[in-house]
Design a protein around this nucleic acid. Sequence first.
DNA 1: CTTTGTGCAAACGATTTGCAGGATG
DNA 2: CATCCTGCAAATCGTTTGCACAAAG
Lengths: 138, 138
Amino acid sequence: MSKEADKIVQILKSKGLRVTPQRFAVYSNLLNRQDHPTAEQILVSLNQNSPTSSQATIYSSLQALRDVGLVREVLLEEGVCRYDANVSSHHHFRCKKCGCIEDIPWEQVEDVRFKALRPGLTVEQYEVTVQGVCDRCQ
Amino acid sequence: MSKEADKIVQILKSKGLRVTPQRFAVYSNLLNRQDHPTAEQILVSLNQNSPTSSQATIYSSLQALRDVGLVREVLLEEGVCRYDANVSSHHHFRCKKCGCIEDIPWEQVEDVRFKALRPGLTVEQYEVTVQGVCDRCQ
DNA sequence: CTTTGTGCAAACGATTTGCAGGATG
DNA sequence: CATCCTGCAAATCGTTTGCACAAAG
């Protein structure tokens, strides 16, 4: 087993998850892609060569991974739930033309300052969603 | 007909929409509430006294209103699509305890500055989603 | 060997659609 | 009176669930 695969196994174990081929596949697929796939896209990707996981298993793996904080959902379009294995604080960019989505590292957005936010509201976290045009679509 | 009702009629007409009782009801309901209701909540609200609009009509009215830019969708939770008649630039706050959502006026968030955003990305707009605790839940 | 995960198919909930009758401009 | 909207019920889409069998620790 490669070092990377071993690392993924360790991560899963450290979160108390049983390591099954399907769960491993879902998580490493998500770790290795930079787009923000939907459950359906992960299913297609995993099964394109040989059947690896069923639809129900993809969903339950994603749920398990989300529950232990290894993946998060990204909601930018109506009716579309995407998944992201990058759970550190970051923002998202979405191209209005091709619909591609990419991460914006936290450091690239200077601190957002709240001026006179309605008294009583306690801010715990915030996320900036940027819409625009990507380089390929310019 | 009241002045407000007349104003709503004018707005709908100015957008090229036929004014039907159902469409009027959906739009004015949305204008008069400060929460960000789902289609279902609008349906219940409109029909609580007497039947006003069917489910399918609520959806098609919302779609028509969205198409002409009178309402927008607000996506903050998985599988929940909310509607907002405030289409001016603004941000959203969501209470992690009670789940209530409220608008944050644009001016309350100082300009967000992007530092070294990946070259090639053109920013057209952005929205800040704040999560925290509201005053009622403190 | 106990617990948890998988796969299948059926169930589900939110939204959409087809169509016939009704209202709008 | 032509066009567009409404309401109903059926269809659809993404996601969840129940259950019998299989795999993990």
